[in-house]
């Protein structure tokens, strides 16, 4: 399904509007990312100036010649049709959330439910941003919600503007993939 044997694999960044998918890919891509951002008219949902309507694309080349392709989905539900297009063939998904958004837990459910069927079992990591801001939900609240739903996925507090934090999300996903593919359980 994913092309690891050929030395390539694909990771999808997803999550609601303004969670930081475009920012995360720009933080770690070695190429200037392909963006499909346009002026945002929906200032009620998010006040930022631009929003993704197609997908983001970035890339990391590994020392051994392997390539990690990074894709970002649009976040607004209107573009839901892009989720499965972008998610197809992904080795794993990273769901980004904004802990200060009132509906963040419901958003997590929405994106986790949409992407779990698109990736191999367990290949999902949740990154929660802005957890230290006033009125933000604690990352444990997100983890408890997943636990109550019987889903065991890492929930990490991150600031996707920092390269090291985005790398931690990718590294965590890589550890899960390695564990699942490296033994009799795979």
């Amino acid at each position: 399904m994913n092309d690891v044997a050929e030395g390539e694999f694909k990771i999808v960044f997803t999550g609601p509007m303004g969670a930081g998918k475009t920012t995360a890919i720009a933080a770690i891509s070695e190429i200037d990312p392909v963006r499909t951002e346009v002026a945002n008219n929906d200032r009620m949902s998010h006040e930022k100036a631009s929003t993704t309507v197609g997908f983001d694309y970035g890339r990391i080349t590994l020392p051994g010649g392997g390539v990690v392709r990074l894709y970002g989905t649009p976040g607004q539900p209107r573009f839901r049709f892009m989720w499965s297009i972008v998610g197809r063939g992904a080795a794993g998904a990273i769901v980004l959330l904004d802990a200060t958004q009132p509906g963040a837990l419901v958003q997590m459910d929405l994106f986790v439910d949409a992407f779990r069927p698109l990736v191999p079992e367990g290949a999902l990591v949740v990154g929660v941003g802005r957890t230290t801001e006033d009125g933000a939900l604690n990352s444990d609240t997100f983890a408890s919600r997943l636990e109550a739903r019987g889903i065991l996925a890492p929930v990490l507090s991150v600031d996707v503007r920092r390269k090291a934090d985005v790398m931690l999300l990718v590294q965590t996903l890589a550890c899960i993939l390695e564990t699942q593919n490296g033994n009799a359980y795979a």
Binding site: V4, G7, L62, P63, G64, A174, L177, A186
Partner: peptide
């Protein structure tokens, strides 16, 4: 291990420092 995975993740780790 599944073919390619170990090497791949090892390379990724090197890249991530």
């Amino acid at each position: 291990p599944a073919r390619g995975w170990r090497r791949f993740v090892g390379d990724l780790r090197k890249h991530l420092g």
